[in-house]
């Protein structure tokens, strides 16, 4: 693989890692498979790209994305908790609705940012190369968000969100409205996802209404890869593993494309198979171990 491809994969992995942190928060912490992300990633891209294209400061434009993402998560959360719509359907409803909203925001299926100033340009100001600037921007944002997420999970609210995902009956009996905790978790998660979309759009130089399709699967794949490769127990370890999972996923995709095993057309099928395999692996290994008659499972 050429250096360009590797750098591209690592950078994209870091930027998607922001989204994966969000998926980690819903899927692993809240135990909620949230499909809103397929709509909130392009939502962040769309709003930031439109704002930048119309001359808004790129930092300001980037900060608007998580706010809108949080609203998207809020809507999914309300659909699920207040109206008892299943988690999957709530997420699908929001993300389908967001497709039209994203088109409205952009007034076209895509917006180009090729000649616009983005946040990355500010990071390469002091004579740094464009790539260094991109690494710096992505690195700073990811490190800050990892620390923020880690800290949040150790606050009273964060602990309540974790307990809600673990044991809802217990959390209610301790006086916490678990509906609100789910809404909080979904909002934070989609804020991260939308921010990820905003950063990706600026990095690749465009926002596209279809860029969100399959986000949830990419997120799950990254979460699972991180867990398998860096099977750590501590919360910090888990959060960091998620970031590495995202980078490894991008590198793996770049590699298989490079080696010609699959073509771009097959990418989604490949990812779907990867996630399926990862999801059924614990079950398969259980059966395998039971057959082999070995004593204990490593949970």
């Amino acid at each position: 693989m050429s250096a360009v491809v590797i750098h591209g994969a690592i950078l994209l992995g870091l930027l998607y890692a922001i989204m994966v942190l969000g998926v980690f928060l819903t899927f692993r912490v809240l135990n909620y498979a949230d499909l809103t992300v397929d709509g909130s990633l392009p939502l962040g891209a769309a709003i930031t790209a439109s704002l930048i294209a119309t001359g808004t400061n790129p930092f300001l434009a980037t900060l608007v994305a998580p706010l809108l993402g949080a609203v998207a998560g809020l809507i999914t959360g309300i659909l699920h908790t207040k109206f008892s719509i299943t988690p999957l359907l709530s997420g699908i409803l929001t993300s389908i609705g967001l497709y039209s909203i994203n088109l409205r925001i952009m007034n076209s299926p895509n917006i180009s940012l090729l000649r616009a100033t983005t946040v990355y340009d500010y990071f390469s100001l002091g004579g740094l190369s464009a790539r260094t600037g991109e690494y710096l921007a992505a690195g700073v944002v990811v490190v800050i968000l990892v620390l923020l997420l880690y800290s949040f999970l150790h606050t009273e609210s964060g602990l309540a969100v974790r307990a809600t995902g673990d044991n809802e009956i217990m959390m209610r009996s301790q006086g916490v409205n678990t509906d609100n905790m789910k809404i909080l978790g979904l909002s934070l998660s989609n804020a991260l996802v939308a921010l990820s979309g905003a950063m990706i759009a600026q990095y690749q130089g465009f926002a596209d209404v279809n860029m969100g399709i399959g986000t949830i699967i990419v997120g799950l794949a990254s979460v699972i890869i991180g867990e398998v490769l860096f099977g750590v127990k501590s919360i910090l370890g888990k959060v960091v593993a998620v970031v590495f999972g995202s980078v490894v996923y991008r590198l793996a995709i770049a590699l298989v494309l490079r080696l010609g095993f699959i073509e771009h057309t097959d990418l989604r099928l490949f990812t779907a198979l990867l996630v399926t395999l990862a999801l059924i692996a614990p079950e398969l290994s259980k059966k395998f171990q039971a057959n082999a008659g070995s004593k204990r499972l490593s949970a």
């Binding site: 949040f152 606050t155 009273e156 609210s157 602990l159 309540a160 974790r162 307990a163 673990d166 044991n167 217990m170 959390m171 301790q174 006086g175 916490v176």
Partner: peptide, 22 residues
């Protein structure tokens, strides 16, 4: 809560009925 530690469970109970803050 199974995945939480002993002290985290106790911390949840210490705030029973209180608003959970940041």
């Amino acid at each position: 809560a199974a995945s939480l530690t002993v002290e985290e469970n106790l911390a949840l109970a210490l705030r029973r009925g209180d608003k959970r803050r940041l």
